[in-house]
Design a protein around this nucleic acid. Sequence first.
DNA 1: TCTGGGGTCCTAGGACCC
DNA 2: TCTGGGGTCCTAGGACCC
Length: 398
Amino acid sequence: MQRRRIIFHIDVNSAFLSWTAVKLISQGHEDIRLIPSVVSGDPSDRRSIVTAASIPAKKLGVKTAMPVTMAMKCCPELKIVQGDRSWYRECSDRFIEICRSYSPVLQQFSIDECFIDMTFRTSAKNASDVAMKLKAEIYSKLGFTVNIGIGSNKLLAKMASDFEKPDKIHELWIEDVPEKMWPLNVRDLLWVGKKTEIKLREYGLKTIGDLAATRPELLSRIIGKKFACQIHEYANGRDDSPVETEYRESKSISAERTFQKDICNARDMDRSLFKIACIVAHRLRRKGLQTSCISLFLKDKDFNVVQKQCQTAIPTDVTAVILNEARTMLNFIWDGKSPIRQIGLGLSKFTNETVIQLSLFEDPKMEYYRQWDREYDKEYENENENENKYDKNKAGSL
DNA sequence: TCTGGGGTCCTAGGACCC
DNA sequence: TCTGGGGTCCTAGGACCC
């Protein structure tokens, strides 16, 4: 008989907020987890949104992804703190390290979540004791709480860790599915988002139990075959995907910026394009990759998105080449005056050529461009891309 | 109240080839 | 003169996650 799998899903409670709190406490400040507070991008920017909210803030109606201005209406004395990416990276690494010491079969699911396969490390009976120990160790060493979901596959573990928060352990085994999972709203099922929920509701499918009882063929007609099959399996608590330990090379790199005020002239647009081209190209070179596909997208004042992509003749990591392609595409999709809210630039289809390909038709200025990139990279080797600083002396030189 | 930023995967239609 | 069907690649757009 096959041994029953035991999977843990470990999820940091309000990660960005908890991690910020830990740092502030170490500097002698109060614990922002205990007061109405949020983490946001740039608090001075009217367009910024809530990245994470404390429990007291949530109780007053503040939700993740809510505009900060709106959160302020819920709670005028809301404390707003700015996020700090490199600190989060550090917290995340330490968190993952502790989890890995419980089982090397670990899959990082996001910056603040991971799965570990505990099948050969504990038994179903002792699983929650082990989880308790892990949870306590993370708290004592790192100062923040986590939820741990325990189940016989990744889906059940993930669903379980979402049950009641914070600082809790929940078990969800396949035999518990009818009682603990079927009464839940379809929206609570992994990969069922807002749009899918609306479609399902049109057919009277409200709970996960409804989904489980619906024939996949019928579901296929509502949401497409592939998705339908997966959702039907999930609704029944079935998931045989393994905990993947392999590091996965990223498939795309992108950067986007939302303007404080919509942009409606070509000059400002080009400056922005220049900045984000510098950022994505820099990230590309840091990873030692070259791109063959560049995509540009714009979001207008009404949130309509247009995008265009193109393939490069030769894989490249040169900012000027990427910028040039982006400029060409911009002319295709923008009239130069309609108000634009957001701009984004993405790179994909990577190769990691160690030899720089020489083309007979190589632009004679290419060596100048590469030198320009080397200087840029030197200036920003310590991450924290400060595009504004750079902008002052270099803008317009490409 | 007025909506960020970074990713992954899927789908449908068109082009092109055999 | 008019025609099939499969495979692959590309593009634009959409949905989801944290």
